[in-house]
Design a protein around this nucleic acid. Structure first.
Lengths: 352, 352
DNA sequence: GGCATATATTGAATCGGTTCACGACATGGA
DNA sequence: TCCATGTCGTGAACCGATTCAATATATGCC
């Protein structure tokens, strides 16, 4: 810091070897005779050389050995959302295995987001968010590095990892139909990037922009149609996917659909908020109201009653996303399976 | 990827300007005449040049513009711990302000930890963990980059951010003493790095290695001494600070100190686990047992009853840690204040 | 001893930019 | 007309390492 840093060339000169040899001492010691190696190492120690500077190596090698995760949400939200946490755990494990790092790149501040993405020192990006994904995908694509989109359709030449949203949603609805339910309500994630929440009418429903939300609605619709139920008669409330937004949505939904015997929530966070709101109103779950979530975050197994939900392999998603970047192969599109997990929040309707 | 990448020199040549000018077009456009600038930009567009590669810039500029967070814990634990989450939120906000990134560096795998720290592309490190901090501090110091230690005493020439652990603990104990409690139990964090949990005897207590734990014990002791209570008569149980470990510790503590009217927990996570265990045993809080935590994580305000605790400014800690690295000034040692937050888990003892 | 084969080391090119001292040219004032 | 001033642009050095063809030295084998 005070004195100018010692560099490899200094060590090489002091030890009387070429810079190439000095480099080998640190990076490929097996190529250097033990005697010479010892001399160079000793010299390095005396000069206070701390080993090759990663910056130099980087330029030559080209590989940063780090993955950038582009986060559009406010980071407060990001770290508090159990889905994101699980995803990061999976990603981190993939990185750990290969000795790579993870860089968080916040795109919350629109003014600086572009710059952040353009200058981030990473080998590739993972765009992981349903909201506002397109903007981030655009930024990442511009940079020209490999990237994988999770839960978003990235369009062109990027990899993607998605789950069978439509199939999962259908499974959820079919489970409730099989239990005998006929009157439903849907607690939905955001349909598009305009910040609107509350009751969703037909026009808004069919013009959903976010792929995940849209597909889940389609999945519910598939099951309804097979059972002869018109989805237009089902109350749908759109809500932000954080505890506060979900609580608000849950209240609105219970107000709007007083005769529903079952609620399809598009996330576990939403479902758990609904459980709380139902308890506040004295509605017994599952006796008076069945609730099914989506995701199977750890909290789902800890709620009371324990939440019936559609499990998606969140950690596996993160892990694969990381592997896809680190492997650096061609673009791929993976579709991960979902699974119905029946726990304690669904039962046959009390009165048919 | 397929075709070799276009670089600045190519653009410069094609546009008929020097490389220096081309560089200015992108990095300091105000130095270049509008006409020339337009020409270079147009050429860049035609050639498909994506703007300066951060790798090249990095080497020359020296600054990476990223902070490394060294995490010793298993990342699963890291992301699930509310304290860490709050810390990261604070850190991220500091980074956001200055357009810097955050890199997560896992030191969970001892074999590769050293390498990870040595090669991470960052401007400095933050070591944030009470357990096993010394090993990480050692690694970070070796790298020779600035670093700040949180909740650890870094020894030599590193900055640190700490809270007044001793004072906070004393406040907690004094609060309970003022309510009239005389029979206490302590749910402690780890005292040293040997994985032992359970009842703590005198020898182990006085040989505590982790500074934070040690200071909190001292703080409790200060208050006890002033009230004429011998800390050696107080049951102390050491437990891991995750939900499972804390639950185990809580059970052990309630078994060991059946006559205690108040429990001092060294973290909110531990306190919340204790609340759950008390409820399971039918012990009413605060009527039969008072509980006080430490940290004031968001969960503390959401527990039932709401947790009385010692607040420490966690986000502020993260924010300052980030600022300290980004500012790059000299080493500093900051001590942040703590504060008693009285909520619903403490009351006068039922029977004096 | 002579030749083929391994093994160690060298020197220079390269990665992709930024920066800075200096020179070219234009403008304006005396 | 000449010099001072200011604006742009040039060219080369530099950041700190890795890599590789080429060379020098040692070893093995007949």
């Amino acid at each position: 810091m005070s004195a100018k840093a010692v560099k490899l060339a200094d060590v090489a000169k002091a030890a009387g070897v070429s810079q190439g040899t000095a480099s080998n001492v640190f990076s490929r010691p097996e190529l250097v005779r033990a005697e010479v190696r010892a001399r160079v190492e000793e010299t390095a120690r005396q000069l206070g050389y701390r080993g090759p500077d990663p910056r130099g190596r980087l330029l030559r090698a080209g590989k940063v050995n780090a993955i950038g995760v582009v986060v559009s949400d406010d980071l407060t939200y990001f770290f508090n959302d159990p889905f994101n946490r699980e995803f990061m755990i999976g990603l981190a494990s993939a990185c750990d295995e290969r000795g790579a790092g993870v860089s968080l790149i916040s795109a919350a501040n629109r003014a600086t987001a572009a710059w952040s993405v353009e200058t981030a020192l990473v080998d590739g990006f993972i765009v992981q968010c349903m909201e506002d994904g397109d903007r981030l995908v655009e930024l990442a694509r511009k940079r020209g590095l490999p990237f994988v989109a999770c839960d978003i359709d990235p369009g062109g030449e990027a990899s993607s990892i998605r789950i069978d949203d439509r199939g999962g949603a259908r499974m959820a609805a079919e489970h409730l139909l099989a239990l005998g339910h006929r009157r439903f309500a849907i607690l939905s994630l955001e349909l598009r990037n305009d910040g609107r929440v509350g009751l969703v009418d037909r026009a808004r429903r069919v013009s959903a922009e976010y792929a995940g939300t849209r597909d889940r609605l389609l999945g519910y619709g598939d099951a309804f149609a097979k059972a002869g139920i018109d989805i237009d008669t089902v109350a749908i409330v759109e809500a932000f996917n954080d505890p506060a937004g979900a609580a608000e949505g849950a209240a609105a939904l219970l107000d709007a659909a007083r005769d529903a015997t079952a609620v399809l929530a598009m996330s576990d966070v939403a479902a758990i908020a609904l459980l709380a709101e139902a308890k506040r109103r004295g509605i017994a779950v599952p006796q008076q109201l069945s609730v099914i979530g989506f995701d199977d975050v750890p909290e789902a197994a800890a709620s009371s009653p324990r939440l019936t939900t559609i499990r998606q392999p969140i950690r596996e998603k993160g892990r694969r996303a990381g592997a896809l970047i680190l492997a650096g192969g061609e673009t791929r599109h993976e579709l991960l399976p979902v699974q119905l997990i029946v726990r304690g929040t669904t039962a046959a309707p009390f009165a048919a």
